[in-house]
Design a protein around this nucleic acid. Sequence first.
DNA 1: GAAAATACGTCAGTCTTGTTGACATTCCAA
DNA 2: TTGGAATGTCAACAAGACTGACGTATTTTC
Lengths: 169, 169
Amino acid sequence: MADGPTQSGSSGQALLYLTDEQLRQGIEAMFFAYRGFTADPDRILEGMSYGRAHHRAIHFIHCAPGTTVNNLLAILGVTKQSLNRVLRTLIEDGLVTSHVGRSDKRERHLTLTEAGEALEQQLSDAQRARMRDAYRKAGPEAVAGFKTVLEAMMDEDMKRAYIAMREGR
Amino acid sequence: MADGPTQSGSSGQALLYLTDEQLRQGIEAMFFAYRGFTADPDRILEGMSYGRAHHRAIHFIHCAPGTTVNNLLAILGVTKQSLNRVLRTLIEDGLVTSHVGRSDKRERHLTLTEAGEALEQQLSDAQRARMRDAYRKAGPEAVAGFKTVLEAMMDEDMKRAYIAMREGR
DNA sequence: GAAAATACGTCAGTCTTGTTGACATTCCAA
DNA sequence: TTGGAATGTCAACAAGACTGACGTATTTTC
């Protein structure tokens, strides 16, 4: 109980005495928690010849329907060759549609089909269930702190992408 | 400001009204934050023919010197064949030593060499620096909440491994 | 209107890291 | 003592990331 980070002064911005051990605990917590975080969708995807890459693409196409390939590239942080392989299979399998842009015909706008939305629902249901349980167990103050630390941990441009997604809804 | 999770009653265990959107935000925060979390070590490793798998092995061998291959397998959650490839290169490159067990000669006990410790230091310095910044920006209450939620998000056996590591020091 | 830049797709090759299958060694218990 | 279980190694393969090069259509810029 006496090994948490200590604070001198009363503000949240005050000096924090953070030992290497405390930080290492945070690092390991992040590692193990991320494993739990991806475990459920991974289980669903396995055996249907899709992977985590497909999940990510489906997730962000769902959140930003009509988004372009370039847009998705920036959010996912992969190369277009890598994304293309994934998108090709999703389009072939009828989970995603690709429409030529109206104003700029070079662009392809991506949308989930009904089948795509169904899979998205199945995947995010599993992930949200775990998230909901964790939030319930931890309580609202913990959740607020959780989000604060995660945002502080992002790269600046990732944070921008995150905030943009958050406000785009 | 009015879109956080709400609480009825005064306990942290009370009913929480969590919309799908709030949960989705958490999911995306986790995604983007994990990217930031691994970015610095990835940058260091790139170009030295090592990857994230090597980093993980080095990290946990450092934390539990003399651990066995089987032990490491359970913590990392990969197949022994996969881990073996990583270990082989680390041993060849003189970063890790492997000793046959004294009481059980089937086991191999793994330890970092001086060079291995040096690389571990370099990698964890980078990761701790980001963690420290995030913790400082967020403040101690947020950090406590962060850890609470992460622990609640882990699988039960992962949580046991995490706690064991935490107490083994 | 020609040239440069942008958006997208594709081919070919490499690297990391996960997988399964087969196998050697060592330990332990029937 | 012998057969099964546990520990670890080697070989081959697949997914998914990467780079580099190239082609095409379209838009923007000069």
